[in-house]
Design a protein around this nucleic acid. Structure first.
Ligand code: MN
Ligand code: MN
Ligand code: MN
Ligand code: MN
Lengths: 218, 218
DNA sequence: ATATATTTTTAGACTTATCTAAATATATAT
DNA sequence: ATATATATTTAGATAAGTCTAAAAATATAT
C-alpha cells in the first residue's frame, strides 16, 4: 500500500532526476514538494525502506525499478485525465493540471484501462507530453526548443516545457497551440529574443518563451 | 477547508439520519465508518466545531444546513461518477461503487458541472438512486419495495436498497435490472417469499430480495 | 429503586506528515 | 590546510486520525 504523499514524492524524484535514474538532491526535492529539507529526508528514508528509492546518506536519492514503475503509472494517469478533461469536458489546457493532480491518485486498473480506450489510446497529453502505454513505454518524438530553432526553417509547435497557467494563457493570447506552424524570421543576438511568422503575422517573443516552446521540423 | 475523512463522516451522518436531519448514535456512526466509537466522538466534536454538525454530549449528532450541503454535494458527485463509469467506461453496476467512493472527493466545480452536462444531466444513478441537481434538489419518484407489492399488479424495477456486489450480481444472474417489468404472482405467507413473473418465466425470490428491490407501478 | 447492561466519553498512546532549531557532513574559497 | 558556506540530517514538537482501556452517563430489568 502506497500513500498519496509517497506517490507525489516518487513522481517528483522521477521528474527531477531525468526519469528517476539520476540522483536528486534533498533540497531540490524539498523545493519541488514545497516542503522543508527535513521532511524530504524523512520521506526519502521511508521510500528507501519500502524499496521505491536508492539512498545513501548525504548522497541524494534515485528511484528503484519499483519506484520508476510507480512514477510512470501516475504520469500515465495524470496525462490521460488531462486528455479527458480537454477532449470531453471542455477544459482548456491551462485548466487541467490541478484537477489531474487529484485524479492521478485514483486507484482502479479498470478505470485507467477503460479511460485509455475511451479516449482512443492517445499518445500525447494537451501539453504535448507523451503518455506512457500500459507497459510503461513512452513514445519519444524528437523535438527542439524554439530558442534552438534555425532562421528560415518552418516548424510546428509540439509541446511546452513550462505548463504554468500564465505561459499557456500567453500562448492562447498569441494564438499559438499544439500544431501551430511557424517560421523563424530572425534571432536577435543581443537579448536572444526571436521573431517568428505564424498565420501571416509576425510576432516577437522573448528568450524565456523560446526556451519553453517545443517545435519539430515539418 | 474540509478533509476527505470529514466528508466521509458527514456523508455517513446524512445517510444514517434520513437526510441528516435525524439524530444519529455514536455507535451507529462508528459502525458505518468501520471505526471505534471513540474515534467517532472525536470526529463529531470536530464537525460540531466547524459547524457542520449539531451535537450535545450523549445526545447524538445531526447535520447543520452547511453539513447537509456538503453531504448532498458529495452524493451528487458520487452518483454522477457512477453514471459516467457505467455509461462511458463499460463498468457494470456492481463495479462502480468503490471507484466512485474515491472520485467523489475530487474538488473542482467545473469538473462536476461539465461531467453533469457531458452525461446529459442524468436524474438517477445506475442503482436507481436520485442525483441531486446543482442546487441540491433531489427528484423524488414514489417507489415501493417488492415485499410490499400487490399480487396481480405489474411493476417496473426502479432501484435497489442494497447496492452490494453480491445482491447486484444475484439480480444480474436472474436477468433483473432497472426497467425490468414483473408481475407479482404469489406471496407466500409462511416465509414471505414471493413468486414473480418476468419475461414469461416465473421466479421465486426470498423476503430479503423482496425488501431490497424497489418497484413502481406501470 | 436499585442493580445491571449498554452507550458514550475521556485519557493516553501510536502513526503519518509536517515544522523549527540545532548538529553534522560536504563543498568551496583563501 | 584551514576557515567559511552550503547541504543534509537529527532531535523534538505539532496536528489529524486512529486505537485500547477506563470512567462516566444513560437505558433497561427486576
Ligand atoms: Mn499536468
Ligand atoms: Mn500535461
Ligand atoms: Mn455508490
Ligand atoms: Mn449508487
Amino acid at each position: 500500500m502506497i500513500t498519496l504523499t509517497e506517490e507525489n514524492y516518487i513522481k517528483a524524484i522521477f521528474h527531477l532526476g531525468k526519469q528517476g535514474s539520476e540522483t536528486v538532491n534533498t533540497n531540490a526535492l524539498a523545493e519541488a514538494m514545497s516542503t522543508k529539507a527535513s521532511s524530504a529526508t524523512d520521506m526519502i528514508k521511508k521510500l528507501a525502506e519500502k524499496n521505491y528509492a536508492n539512498y545513501k546518506k548525504y548522497q541524494g536519492v534515485s528511484l528503484t525499478e519499483d519506484g520508476k514503475r510507480v512514477a510512470v503509472n501516475i504520469i500515465r494517469k495524470h496525462r490521460l485525465w488531462e486528455v479527458f478533461l480537454v477532449e470531453k469536458l471542455n477544459f482548456t489546457w491551462d485548466q487541467v493540471h490541478d484537477v489531474a493532480e487529484q485524479l492521478e491518485h485514483i486507484k482502479s486498473q479498470k478505470l485507467i484501462d477503460e479511460l485509455d480506450a475511451f479516449l482512443g489510446f492517445p499518445t500525447h497529453d494537451p501539453h504535448g507530453d507523451p503518455i506512457p502505454d500500459k507497459s510503461g513505454k513512452f513514445i519519444h518524438i524528437e523535438k527542439l526548443s524554439l530558442a534552438s530553432a534555425k532562421v528560415g526553417i518552418v516548424y510546428m509547435c509540439v509541446g511546452v516545457n513550462d505548463s504554468s497557467v500564465d505561459f499557456l494563457k500567453y500562448l492562447d493570447n498569441n494564438a499559438i497551440s499544439l500544431g501551430t506552424r511557424m517560421e523563424i524570421v530572425h534571432k536577435e543576438p543581443f537579448d536572444h529574443s526571436i521573431k517568428i511568422r505564424l498565420n501571416g503575422r509576425e510576432l516577437m517573443v522573448s528568450q524565456t518563451v523560446g526556451k519553453n516552446l517545443f517545435l519539430k521540423e515539418v
